[in-house]
């Protein structure tokens, strides 16, 4: 009896210790970046061009991250949500459904560097485009699509059966039911899924090394609206090094006098952005939920 009680107390203490340790590590990581960044950080850092001789900024790469994000989501969201509708509403048990599920699982576990290789072979080499934002976005789509598909499917599946039954009982067709009874209720979950997927785009680097390119851009001319001009920051057919890739690149090359400071501040920016996406998805999901149930 006494041994059993001692074991219980010991186990409880160990589990607490593990939890405290892990949380402390996390807090330490975030605190580290914040503390290291404060002395050199200024808002100008977010907008200035990178520099080898002074701290400079991350303006162009930050722009590229946002640009890639939008481009990737433009490609991914329609396919992911429509595919999610199919999986939740139409897919039966069968070989086709199985094949789709297996594909989802496979892509989710293929390393992003391999997806990057594939993107290189198809969107860079085979198409002859070279390193482009579009090629990068298509590559990111390849491994974000299965995730968004799954999240949308889950969101749609959580819609209670009565919502469907009521609509069908009123004589609506299946599609009308999906469109007017199911989707409005599923929207909060779908939006949460979209934002979570978007957060991944921001952090991804390995898949972009060989697709969107590695050059450090400077001096973007935002008045150049020619979408086909590889010099225009608006063009999808141009090199687009993102913030994540930039951090890796500046470290592995070790160029510049302020690599350390720039990497710390960039990391902080990246963490803050990804956190914002996480919190944003919760908040947006919650707000939409209230809105939908308030209807």
């Amino acid at each position: 009896m006494r041994r059993v009680l001692a074991a219980d107390r010991l186990a409880t203490a160990v589990l607490w210790a593990v939890a405290v340790f892990v949380i402390l590590v996390l807090v330490a990581i975030i605190a580290y970046f914040v503390i290291e960044s404060i002395p050199t950080f200024s808002l100008a850092f977010l907008f200035a061009d990178p520099s080898l001789t002074e701290i400079g900024g991350i303006g162009p790469v930050l722009w590229n991250s946002v640009y890639m994000l939008v481009l990737t989501m433009l490609l991914t969201v329609p396919l992911g949500v429509l595919g999610g509708i199919y999986m939740a509403e139409y897919a039966g048990e069968g070989r086709l459904t199985n094949a789709i599920r297996f594909s989802q699982e496979l892509i989710s576990s293929v390393p992003s560097i391999v997806v990057g290789l594939f993107g290189f072979a198809l969107f860079v080499a085979a198409t002859g485009w070279g390193f482009t934002a579009l090629g990068g976005a298509l590559t990111l789509m390849v491994f974000n699509l299965p995730l968004l598909l799954r999240l949308s499917e889950q969101a749609i599946r959580t819609v209670p059966a009565d919502e469907r039954a009521a609509s069908l009982a009123l004589g609506a067709t299946k599609w009308q039911t999906i469109r007017h009874a199911v989707l409005p209720v599923a929207i909060p979950g779908v939006v949460t899924g979209i934002v979570l997927t978007a957060g991944r785009v921001f952090g991804e680097a390995a898949a972009l090394l060989f697709t969107a390119g590695l050059s450090t851009p400077t001096r973007y001319d935002f008045s150049n609206l020619n979408l086909l001009d590889p010099q225009s920051p608006w063009s999808p057919f141009r090199n687009a090094t993102t913030l994540s890739v930039f951090i890796w690149k500046s470290n592995s090359e070790g160029l510049g006098n302020y690599v350390h400071e720039v990497a710390n501040m960039s990391s902080m920016v990246l963490i803050v952005m990804v956190l914002a996406f996480n919190l944003g998805s919760r908040w947006l999901g919650g707000a939409l939920q209230r809105h939908v149930s308030g209807l």
Binding site: L79, Y86, A91, I100, S103, I107, V115, L117, V142, K174
Partner: peptide
């Protein structure tokens, strides 16, 4: 609608087939 949504879902299979093929 069924065909369109199915088409979207099939993109995943297409991506896998292409990926396997190329790699």
């Amino acid at each position: 609608p069924r065909r369109i949504t199915l088409g979207a879902a099939l993109v995943v299979i297409a991506a896998v087939v292409l990926l396997l093929g190329f790699i």
